[in-house]
Simulated assay, not measured.
Amino acid sequence: MEHRGLDADGCFEREGSLGQVPGAFAGVVATARGRIRDAYGRRLHSAYLYGSVPRGTARPGHCDLGLLLALHHEPADEDRDAAEVLARGLDEDFPEVDGVGILLYGKDTLLSEAERFDLGWFLACRCTPLLGADLAEHLPRYRPDSLLARETNGDLADVLPRWRRLMREASTPDEYRRLCRLFSRHLVRTGFTLVMPRWGGWTSDLTESAEVFGGYYPQRADQMRAAAAAALDPVADPAVLRAYVEDLGPWLADEYTARHGTKTPRPAGGAPR
């Protein structure tokens, strides 16, 4: 049987590790560790890497750096301002990364029952420890079931109105490319988790995710393959974004709701896509 990202018991294996970080990104990771410690001090509980860098698949100049910071308390304005300065500084100082994204949460939120199958799963299965004690030790093991599908990506219908607003407000090629990467990633992740319980496994590879999806929805396979390609090399084409919010996105939201239901409402937040 294929491995499909699961252990012998059918539970998710944690993806990524510091040992898999490509050499080209070693400098930015080491610097991020030091700057996080300096910026947050005793306020920081732990820090994590996520995305292609700890998975070892990042391409210099084409991939962003993802960081998740867990604080001892819920983030305040001071903490959010520090994250903005940290992200901007790393992006400016290291051309190897194309953008830096920092997720900032209190540890109680990350361990809460409400986030058990969204942020909790994200931390335990898709994040690599960088600093501090690993919160994953307090979280359960996870399986690729319909509950996980619902609680991770069962909110696309709620996301689409915000996407339409962002699209209307965009006007420059850089803004269109940024939205193309954001929308494309989210759609491919959502398409994959739609079929994840039937496929019985996990992958973070966007190209593979689109292929797995296409095996169950051949009539939408070409669209999802194109979205995966655009997620890796975003384009500054408003027509692509319109197709996402007017066609693929609404269809995917309806199909997702029909198969898995809708995500339990949260006051705010959720895992990245």
Rank of each mutant, 00 (worst) to 15 (best):
P272N: 06
L44V: 11
K263Q: 14
R14G: 03
R162F: 02
E92A: 15
P54F: 03
H45C: 00
E84N: 04
T190Q: 09
H138I: 00
D237Y: 10
A170P: 08
L131K: 06
L248P: 05
V85E: 14
G215R: 13
V245K: 04
D158L: 10
P272H: 08
A124V: 07
A47I: 10
R266I: 05
G154A: 06
A210Y: 05
G191R: 08
T152I: 03
Y142P: 06
L18R: 14
L65N: 12
A124Y: 01
N153C: 15
F183I: 12
A133S: 06
D134V: 07
T128N: 12
S46L: 05
H186R: 15
R116K: 15
L156T: 03
P234S: 14
H62Y: 08
L194G: 08
A228F: 01
M167G: 08
V53G: 05
A114H: 11
V240K: 14
G249A: 09
P197A: 09
T264A: 08
V97H: 12
G214Q: 01
A253Y: 02
F117T: 03
D247Y: 04
E208H: 13
R177L: 02
P218G: 03
G270T: 07
A8H: 13
C125P: 02
F183Q: 07
P129N: 13
A236I: 04
L111E: 08
G16I: 13
M224D: 12
G154L: 04
D237L: 09
L160D: 03
A258I: 08
P234K: 15
V159S: 03
P234W: 09
L6K: 10
A39T: 08
L103M: 08
L90M: 00
R4A: 09
R126I: 11
G106Q: 04
T262F: 00
L232I: 14
H62W: 13
C11R: 05
G99P: 11
A227D: 07
L160K: 00
G270C: 04
R80V: 07
D158C: 06
V28H: 07
G215K: 08
D93P: 04
A149D: 04
L69M: 11
T109Y: 08
G56W: 01
A32C: 02
Y142C: 00
A32T: 05
G27S: 08
D222A: 07
L90S: 02
V245L: 04
A133G: 01
D145S: 05
R189I: 06
Y142W: 00
R37H: 12
Y50I: 02
R43T: 12
D247K: 12
P267F: 05
D134L: 04
G200A: 12
E2V: 10
E15S: 14
E13A: 03
R165S: 10
E175P: 01
E92C: 09
P173G: 02
R259I: 13
R177S: 03
V28N: 07
R4W: 08
G19E: 15
